[in-house]
Amino acid sequence: MNWTAFWDAAWQFTLVTGLSFVALCLVASMIRFYQLSSPTALLATTATISETLRFQAYLAARLGTAYRLPDPFCLLIATGPAVAAAIREQTLKIIRNTVRQADVVLALDDGTIGILLDTSRRHVEPIIARIQNALTAAGGLRVGVVSCPENGVRVQPLMAAAQAAIPAAGTDWALATPLTGAEPLPPVEDEDAAGDHGAWVDQLTGVLRPDRLRRVMPKFVARYRREGEPVSLIYLDVDYLERYNDHYGRAAGDEILRGLGLLLQHQVREDDLIGRVSEDDFVILLNCPPAAALLTANRLGGAIKKATFAAAGYTLKVTISGGVASCPEHGRTATQIFDAAHAALRAAQDRGRNMCLLFDDTMKPYHTASLGADPF
């Protein structure tokens, strides 16, 4: 028996097996990372750990959607006789029956009750009054109330402000004072427009309209810059959409865009900002570094390539091209990273389409050409 050949074969087998195992672990880790980047997934993972963490996950998800749909909401922290351990479950049931089904009511780890109400600070008083009336026999509650965005847009500061707003015995509830200089995110021209879904969302694709995206995007970038966190922008274009319009009709192109809008919303995280900037272009803003943004762009491209779109009696498939740029690596303002991502998109189109590229110095000629396109 040739022992040298035997040991060589055994070594090669061990090496291949080990490398395969490492590759599988890396793939599994990446999949798990993207699952946990979603607040919805976070809710499931925290369910068995802590009710407070689960409540904070709901709050984080609600803060994320505040960028996409500018609906105000209130956070309530309640204590008092009705929260006593012996009757807490009954109190929770009464509150849940009093508020709307979509509102969140949970018992927190410190013995208080957390409530998320999908309403503005202007309309919170009658809701609290209904809760107090329902709990009169149990001794009532003392409730601290904060609202988003008036009292901030971060989980921990909002939780702390609501705790601090809980009034002393003898007072039912207290509303925290808005932060000095606080401004609603996204900004609106009038208060009534804030709750108007149609005023913000593109009716075809379900994402932010171009004019609304222009107003929200600089604030998104500025917010994370103030906190020293990275911001990345993905600029996506549907490859050859005009050919689909010419061959199958404009209605088919609209169905493709409708499906893409829905797919993108399901693929990105709740706190990512997504909008439409032209007929077949989408922009996504993410709180992540350049490498992670490029990975996300390629993942989106792969998901779209696998998808099918039913339109005009046909089953159609499309691909996308994309450009990625980040702050501060490629610019320090919304306009600068928008132009850089647009330049990277142009480079991807020139290199054959159906790919996503991260902006680099070789794309500066495209960058010059894109300046002024859809400025923010």
Rank of each mutant, 00 (worst) to 15 (best):
T180G: 01
A168W: 06
T180V: 13
A161F: 11
P184S: 13
R154Q: 15
L158D: 01
V188C: 11
Q156M: 14
N151V: 06
A165M: 09
A162H: 10
D172I: 08
L158C: 06
R154N: 12
D172Q: 07
P157G: 07
D172A: 15
P187T: 12
A162W: 05
D172M: 02
P184A: 13
G170S: 10
G170V: 08
P187G: 11
V188K: 01
A162N: 03
A168S: 15
Q156H: 07
T177C: 05
P184Y: 04
G181L: 02
G181E: 01
T171N: 08
G170N: 07
A168Q: 14
Q163F: 14
P184F: 10
G152V: 08
W173A: 11
R154C: 08
A168F: 08
Q156N: 12
P157E: 08
A182R: 05
L185R: 06
P186N: 05
E183C: 03
A168C: 07
A160E: 15
A174V: 02
G170Y: 05
A164V: 09
L185G: 01
M159V: 15
T177H: 13
M159N: 01
V155A: 10
R154Y: 03
P149K: 03
A168V: 12
V155P: 02
N151W: 07
D172Y: 06
A169N: 06
A168T: 12
